[in-house]
């Protein structure tokens, strides 16, 4: 992020029975966001429709996680990820995001759907350690591209060390 984003440091917390729902087109532009989404991110529906999903991006999210996101969903698979998002006012909230592609009758991907649930404290605590490592990897690289490649590689190495695949790792948190 070239532009320094304002962070309020205030955490917004979801309730157990809430689900943040959003839908995007193939390019990641928001086509739908539910009321939970609007409330927690302090956006109006008008503001989010047509906006890129990256407006929610928080600087503490490693870019390699989004790379993984896109790899997965563009190949038609689902992905779970713990994500910290930034609201319009600079507040942040942790979610367990579950992103899945939507298909038309011919099986062609028409867009993406995200269900986000409350992330448990234990999971957040654990994932923060991983993200810190990956962020450090991205930060120390000379350029963004190398940083992304290195952190992505690091993620694979860490998973390999743990002997699990990404989904198993995330869902076990």
């Amino acid at each position: 992020m070239a532009k320094e984003l304002y962070l309020s440091g205030k955490e917004r917390v979801m309730t157990d029975d809430e689900i943040i729902v959003s839908k995007t087109d193939l390019k990641g532009h928001i086509t739908y966001g539910n009321d939970v989404f609007c409330n927690i991110a302090d956006y109006s529906t008008k503001e989010i429709i047509g906006a890129p999903h990256s407006i929610l991006r928080h600087p503490e999210m490693p870019r390699c996680i989004f790379k993984l996101f896109w790899e997965r969903i563009e190949s038609g698979r689902e992905i779970f990820a713990y994500v910290v998002n930034r609201g319009k006012q600079g507040d942040h909230y942790w979610v367990l995001a579950h992103v899945t592609p939507s298909f038309d009758a011919n099986g062609k991907i028409t867009g993406y759907h995200s269900n986000r649930r409350k992330a448990t404290n234990a999971a957040v605590k654990a994932i923060k350690v991983l993200y810190a490592t990956l962020l450090a990897e991205e930060a120390k690289a000379s350029d963004r591209k190398t940083g992304l490649r290195n952190s992505y590689q690091r993620l694979q190495e860490i998973l390999k060390e743990k002997g699990v695949d990404y989904d198993e790792f995330v869902l076990a948190l």
Binding site: D16, D17, E18, I19, E78, L96, H98, T100, N115, R117, K118, D167, E168, L171, A172
Partner: peptide
């Protein structure tokens, strides 16, 4: 969730269950 969880189960990925939250 149900579709993907059953699909995962049919592929033997039983760890992918439906999240109870929400």
């Amino acid at each position: 969730e149900s579709l993907l969880a059953m699909q995962a189960a049919s592929e033997g990925r039983y760890y992918r269950k439906i999240r109870q939250e929400g």
